[in-house]
Structures are given as structure tokens and as C-alpha cells.
Design a protein around this nucleic acid. Sequence first.
DNA 1: CTGTTAGCGCATTCAG
DNA 2: CTGAATGCGCTAACAG
Lengths: 339, 339
Amino acid sequence: MVTIKDVAKVTGVSPSTVSRVIADSPSISPETKKRVRKAMKKLGYYPNVNARNLVVQSSKAIGVVMPSSADKALQNPFFPEVLRGIGSVTHQMEYSLTLSTGQTEDEIYSEVERLVYGSVVDGIILLYSRLNDRVTNFLLEKDFPFVIVGKPYENENKITYVDNDNVTAAKEITTHLIEKGHRKIAFIGGSSDLFVTKNRGAGYEKALQQAGIPTCDKYKIHAEFLKSGGREAVKNLLSLETVPTGIMVTDDLMALGVMSTLEEHGVRVPHDVSLVSFNNLYLSQITRPALTTVDVQIYELGVQSAKALIEKTANKGEPAKRIIIPHQIIYRDSVNGVG
Amino acid sequence: MVTIKDVAKVTGVSPSTVSRVIADSPSISPETKKRVRKAMKKLGYYPNVNARNLVVQSSKAIGVVMPSSADKALQNPFFPEVLRGIGSVTHQMEYSLTLSTGQTEDEIYSEVERLVYGSVVDGIILLYSRLNDRVTNFLLEKDFPFVIVGKPYENENKITYVDNDNVTAAKEITTHLIEKGHRKIAFIGGSSDLFVTKNRGAGYEKALQQAGIPTCDKYKIHAEFLKSGGREAVKNLLSLETVPTGIMVTDDLMALGVMSTLEEHGVRVPHDVSLVSFNNLYLSQITRPALTTVDVQIYELGVQSAKALIEKTANKGEPAKRIIIPHQIIYRDSVNGVG
DNA sequence: CTGTTAGCGCATTCAG
DNA sequence: CTGAATGCGCTAACAG
């Protein structure tokens, strides 16, 4: 390994000078800078990250923690996409991206402890938002920089987060259904302890209320992602006396499952029931029919969260921010007019 | 930050003793071990990873590099799944997982340089295998520990890799089609410079040959993932004078696209054409019809690659290994008998 | 069984 | 503008 000393020796300067050149300190003559840089290149010098981190007490790394992977939810293409977004800025800023996956909540918690106490990362991005989350509380208590992708359940004003305006988005897409003449509209959401689910549910209800359509408990269903993307949910819906003509699903992947189940029961989309969902995953354009869905700009969620976090680590005391990524409805073929 | 010195002071021993306790050195009396441990807990001591890494010249971290993310291929749920597998062992071994995403090949290359030269990671897992890959060559030349998930194009005996027996798997599933009476069987593969595509294509041909079915160039199509999962490919196939009755697709997600396009053209699966594919992604069971596909045990690919890599970093000079993960055909509803 | 010494590679005082 | 000295937190000989 070639160190700062080696290039110092070759150049005939002191190690500290080399260090200053690396930092591009203004108090070094352009002359020597050039010489030192040339030597660095020639010797193939590369700064040792650990040594540097040790002295500056920072790691130039951010941790990303995924939701507990006990379930299949992780197979959602949502994740690679946020990671791409995050990765694009970490790369650009020359940060490392440390990923933390864990089967159980305990595993995740202990890993986060290691990341924080061991000075492995300077900040953390949480890819989920759960009620009474130990990790969130831990981070908050330690006053460790972190941002949530999604909306925090509690301490909303203390936490920096980046999210979509999910209630508005949900309201808009539900309204789209209403404008197409639908009045019997159901809601199929994922795990009810995810805040997204809640928000999108709220938007759905808002739209109905605004249109003067009474909400109906039987039309609002929470399906665990695990269960074949809402197979049960659909069966319930179809067994009702008045079957809905429109369904809003909170995720494209789940919508795919819903659609399959629907058609299995001889219900055709969009002919018999219209379907809308969220995320605009790649797969939503290759399903048949292609899904009308709201593009939440997953990549951008990642980009902004990383930027916000890095800013926060660089500048502690930065106040908590709330970053809302705009959404957009992508109209495709899963919705029909009715009446 | 509470350091080793602090707990030394409190316990009335020297820092080195504390260090030995951390390493659980046998040459420390159980007596003092207990005392030291108690003090550590009381003070909330946590080892500083950077300091430790600096002296032992290792980072207890492995890097995972994703394929260049210019295209949508990354939206394949394959990736979160391998990551989960890798993460499970890194967690268990108390390693960190550093993820490297990059839009372009250059970005990836420079990032890998940083990881290697900067001693950021002890080893690297490559989540792709490409011909004449700069990164692979770099790693090979530097003699830096790495393993490939998939099969290397060159230097196969110098590189540790974990893969499925893709040609056999492809042969088996194609044979399944043949046994069901199909003789006009097409192949739709992804990007042709991916080795998987090649191998699965070879298996496909092998099966045909063995059954005495002549292969036909027009039946073998490579579709870029980007293009709506093979829309073009399907159109080509359907415009042939003798339309195939069976299609093997190299990936579930692409198969979904193929299926949609097929049905758009009024061709029903499996009634008119049977479809088989690869990966057994979650989505393959919620499509309609559910896909007959080969389960390649993505999670296990991750686990084994991480294990192999860590072993290799711990024990340089470890010979290159070849780890084959068994596959299994999952029979579902996308295949019909014919004749 | 334990303490002392030295040093990992680098950034940062403080002198000059 | 540059060099010498010091220390980040920890491990690893070398002594005892």
C-alpha cells in the first residue's frame, strides 16, 4: 500500500504537505501542488479511507436500512429503484452506501446499533415508516442524523423525511375513477401499519366524501402482501351483494395480483371493473391491461433523501425538513367509463 | 465517544487488556474479563470500527456491485432478493455490506477503484457477468478477492463464482414442453451479452436436438429488456408462417410482458401457446395464468456468494471455486398439452 | 496473566 | 508557504 509518506519522500516534501494537497488547501503553492499530484499519480496513491475517517471522526458513508425482510414485500421493485436514486448521489459525493437488511426487527436494530456506535456511517436512511419503531426511537434519542423515506408516524416535526403527498395523490386517482362514472369504489391496501397505506386510504375517502359518495367499510380492505397479492381481498369484494366497479390498489405489484384474481373469477378489467394503483413500476406498463397508476418518482425519492441526509450530516443542527416529491397520474388501460 | 481507555481506567487495567477482552483472548483471567465486560456495558462502550480496521488492515465489509443501471433491468426483483441473501450472512458475520450502483460502466469502475484502493471493502461480489468487463479484469489483475454471481465469460478457472446449472435447467424445462407434445418451441432471451442468456439458450437447443427437433433461427430471439419486455420479439414470432406453440423466456418479468403481448394479439396462454420461464419471482405466482418457471433460488445464490467471498478474504490463496445452486421446476398453469 | 511500547495512515495544531 | 509534532482508537509484539 502506497501511503502519504511515500509520495512525500518522492516529492521531497513532508507528509503534512501532501495531506494539504489532498485537501486542496489554498496555502500550498501551485508549484508544489503540481509536483505532489504528479507523484501521487505515478505511485498510484489512493487515500486510505479508514485512516482518514479515524482522524476526522466521520465515515463518508450513509446507511440504508430496508424493512424487515421476513415477508415477500422486499421483492417489490420499489427498492432497487430507491437504491439507484440514493446511489447516484452517494457516488457523486464520493460517499459509500452501506446497506442493512435484516430478517427480524431485532436483527435490524442490532445492525443499526453497530452502524451508529461503531461510526460505520454518518447518517441513516430508513426505507420504511412504522409505528413505535425501535430503530426510529433509537436514532431520535441519540440525535443521530437520519431521514425517512415515507412519512413518520410520530415526531413529524423533529424528523426529516421525503415523501409524496399520498393523500392528495390517492384523492386524485380516486376522483379520476369517479369522473369516469364509478360510484362503487373499493380500496385494497397493503399492511395497515404502514403509513403509506393509511395516507392513501385517507385520500380515497376524501375523494368519495367530496363526491358525496358514502364510504362503506366493506369496501375498504387491507391485505397482507404475503397473501398472493390480495387474493383474499378480492374474493371478499366479489362476494358482496353489490360488487364494486372500481378498485384502487396501493401498489402495482399487488394490483397485478388483484387483476389476476379478478379475471380468474371471470371479472374482466377494465370491462367489468376498473383498476388503478400506485408506483408506476416498470411492470405496470407490461401488464394486460396496462395499469393506470400514479407515478411517485421512486428514483427521485431516493435522490432527495440522500441529498437531505448528507446535508444534515455535514451540517448538524440543520432543522428537520419535509420534502414532498410531486406525483403524476399515468393514464393507461385499466380504467373504463361506466354508466 | 467512550473508548477503550475509558473502560480501562474505570476497570483499573490497561487498554491492551481491554482490547484482549474484546477479542476474547484466552490469556485473560475470567475474573478480569467479567469486570471489564461489566464496565463496557456500564459505560456503553462500542468498538470504533475505523480504528480497528486501520490497524488490522481490513474493513470487515464487502462490496456488492450491481449491473449498470442505465436500463430498467434493475427493476427486476431479482436484486433485492440476492441482496437479502448476501445481507443475511454479512449480518451474521458482522460484516458491512457496501452497495455500489452506477449508471454507466465508468461510474461503476471508478467506484470499484475507490472501494479497492481506499480499503473500503475486503472483497467484492459482482452481480453480473459481462464479456470484457473492465471491473472484472481490474479485480483479477489486482488479485483482489471477488466472486461473481453468474458465470464468468473468461478465466473461468481463476474466478470463484456461484451460479445455477443454467444449461441443464433450460434443457429440462424445454424438455417439459416437448414432453407435453410441443415441437414448435421458441426462445426469447434477454440481452445477448449476458452469459445467462447464452447458457439458457444452449440448454434450449440441447433439448430440441435430443428430441430430434430441428432448431430454427427465427425461433430464437433476443429482446432487450427495455423494450417492454419483448413486445417486438412476440410480434416477430406471431408473424411467422408457423407460429410456435411453446415459448421459453429467460426471465419471469419478461415472460409477463410476453404474455401480455401474446394475449393482446388474441393468442391465449396456455390455450394457444404454452409459456415457461425462469426465476420463480414472487410475481410469477400472481400472474394469470401463474407461470411454470424454474426456481433458481435467488436468495441462496446470495448466501453462497457471500459465504464464499468472506472465506476467500479471510483466507487468501483459497483456490477459485465453482458453486452450483440446485434449481427446481415449479409447475403451474402456463403450459398445456398439445396434439 | 497483564502492562508498556509502538504504530496503522492521516489531518491538524503550532512553529517557523 | 511548509515542516515537526501530536493524536484519532485500537491491536500487536515484547516484556515481565
